[in-house]
């Protein structure tokens, strides 16, 4: 195969954990290929947001791109791991994306959609932040207006099942919507709460780790198949190194930096008890899982759940 030049679109600013992961990827790939593969990174959404990057990757406009959980909107079987309260922590989640079950989903997607995951890096969990009250138990969510994406059926069903009012608000309007009470709050990662300064207008954070979110290192399938074995090996390993670097940075920023900023700004950050998290999980999954089984088939959903169970047992997780 010929030498290759990659123009890769990502959406975070250059200092974001994901951008740093891609920088590690670029360094490895250029060095290991001896200059055979050239990498140029376009950060901050210069080539489009993750949804458009994914469309570009499908069409082969973009050979490699950053992907994230919006993948679940384009390829429905991927919804299975997007179930609220599925993973206990980011380590189990990371192991899931290295599992055989995910590998099978990935092969299916490569075949059906023409896009393949080379590596995945969980970047955190949704946690509730709201301006109204601390949340210690399921009942505390009752009647809270929580933001959802207008297009995400899954979060709408999940938040409603928890007793909250799902309110669609676009990304740019979240801050003012909280400050004026259009919404009480939302679920998002600690990192986003800090970046977007939501803590200025909402002072209650609950560490309930509901929905796990993830960044992908995606490649167009036709391009992938056109490469030599050697090139494929380099790109795959580069993606794994990038994902590992990103995972470490993101975990540290979520667990240390973000919590520090929240504490400095007088935010009441509280963990949720095991029992209450189980109640939240049961309530949300009771609404989401039947709908999901109908949409993508019970077989896939059961398989993903079983895989996560066995990973938890293997890793001795809680």
């Amino acid at each position: 195969a010929q030498s290759v030049s990659l123009q890769i679109g990502t959406i975070e600013s250059p200092t974001g954990a994901n951008s740093q992961g891609w920088q590690a990827f670029a360094q490895y790939v250029e060095a290991a290929s001896g200059g055979d593969i050239a990498v140029e990174l376009f950060h901050s959404g210069q080539l489009g947001d993750t949804e458009k990057l994914l469309e570009g990757a499908k069409l082969g406009i973009n050979k490699m791109v950053q992907g994230d959980e919006t993948l679940t909107g384009a390829y429905e079987p991927m919804l299975a791991w997007f179930t609220p309260y599925l993973f206990p922590d980011e380590f189990v989640m990371k192991a899931f994306f290295e599992s055989e079950t995910f590998g099978e989903l990935n092969e299916m997607m490569a075949e059906d959609m023409g896009v393949r995951v080379l590596a995945a890096s969980p970047y955190g969990f949704y946690n509730f932040i709201n301006k109204t009250r601390p949340i210690d138990k399921l009942e505390d969510l009752d009647g809270l207006k929580l933001r959802t994406l207008p297009s995400s059926q899954l979060t709408i069903k999940a938040w409603e099942a928890l007793g909250a009012a799902a309110t669609p608000v676009s990304w740019g309007e979240i801050y003012t919507s909280i400050s004026t009470g259009v919404i009480d709050g939302l679920g998002h990662t600690l990192g986003i709460m800090v970046d977007q300064k939501y803590y200025e207008v909402a002072k209650n954070v609950t560490l309930d780790n509901s929905i796990g979110v993830v960044n992908f290192y995606l490649v167009n399938e036709n391009f992938w198949q056109s490469l030599s074995d050697e090139q494929r090996k380099v790109l795959k390993r580069g993606a794994e190194i990038g994902a590992a670097a990103e995972f470490g940075i993101a975990s540290y920023r979520n667990r240390v930096d973000a919590l520090e900023v929240l504490a400095e700004n007088g935010v009441d950050v509280r963990p949720i008890s095991e029992e209450e998290r189980a109640r939240l999980r049961d309530a949300a999954q009771a609404a989401v899982v039947p709908w999901m089984k109908e949409t993508i088939g019970a077989e896939i959903v059961d398989k993903v759940f079983a895989e996560v169970d066995s990973i938890e047992k293997r890793l001795g997780g809680n």
Binding site: P150, S151, Q153, I156, A165, A166, T167, P168, S170
Partner: peptide, 9 residues
């Protein structure tokens, strides 16, 4: 009564 999911789209 609460927002509709489709007007934006």
């Amino acid at each position: 009564v609460g927002a509709l999911p489709w007007p934006e789209e």
